[in-house]
Design a protein around this nucleic acid. Structure first.
Lengths: 138, 138
DNA sequence: TTAACTCTTGAGAGTTACTCTCAGTCAATT
DNA sequence: AATTGACTGAGAGTAACTCTCAAGAGTTAA
């Protein structure tokens, strides 16, 4: 059993966020001790993991709650949960592609600046820069 | 020259967001026509591109404004801009790793549900499920 | 054993970055 | 002349945190 702080450290999620998620109903089996303090079981950690996963792919909290509720309902909702996971996975793959594209731009910019620095900031008028250098030097 | 709607379509950013970014000072050279309507040049599109890139990697708007301002100041800020790009790139690479990790979990879940469905939802008591199936079936 | 320190709690205010609504302007079409 | 459609700014609304605060336990140090 783990305190909220331990879970926060272990999962790299702030205590605030964990409390917020708990209040949102994301950890339906989370128990408290006699002092009203939340104690996370290993099973609760699995819920934290899946919530973190869904959030990191941009799933809205409302949709996460829906998934959690489907889990609680039980086996009859397995096909629906399967669809949600598939959709989420596709979203993640799309994000991967987008991130790759942005990394290409960042690579380009990195090289661009590196060259300027290597040449002692003197090639302001390389082909990248047209009539008004300061407008182009994005 | 492009209207805000054309840019919105081309770049897959909402008009609202573009106006919000414009008001935030992210497009310092953006001009208007005689009817006060924003007209984006190809150069303005480059600014949209870099802002979209920085945002998609989670850079705060305040930090983006700072980068834009450095661009406007000119050549003396090249080393600083270079550092920003490098830091941003590292952040993007980290996000890539995180996304890969989450994709593994989603793959696992996908297979898990697929198996349940293939076996007509009958293997509720496979090793994944302990004493209380509904608590484990995350 | 009292004081200091740490961890936790809930309530609620504050923040970021949109996102949307609305009333109004303007140009072009019917 | 009336309608349509793109655009405008101001400002309200929203999601998901993020932070502050006062209060209450338990642990440790003098």
């Amino acid at each position: 059993m783990y305190t909220i702080k331990e879970v926060a450290d272990k999962m790299e999620i702030s205590e605030h966020t964990l409390r917020f998620w708990a209040k949102s109903g994301f950890f339906p089996f989370l128990k408290r001790n006699h002092n009203n303090i939340r104690l996370f079981s290993d099973n609760d950690l699995e819920w934290v993991k899946i919530v973190k996963c869904l959030r990191s792919v941009g799933t809205e909290n409302k949709a996460i709650k829906k998934y959690i509720d489907l889990c609680i309902i039980g086996d009859s909702t397995i096909p629906e949960r399967y669809e949600i996971i598939k959709t989420t996975k596709n979203k993640a793959l799309q994000q991967m592609e987008e991130l790759k594209k942005q990394l290409e731009l960042l690579d380009y910019k990195e090289n661009f600046y590196q060259n300027l620095i290597k040449n002692n900031l003197k090639d302001e008028w390389n082909p990248m820069n047209k009539s008004k250098p300061e407008e182009e030097a994005v």
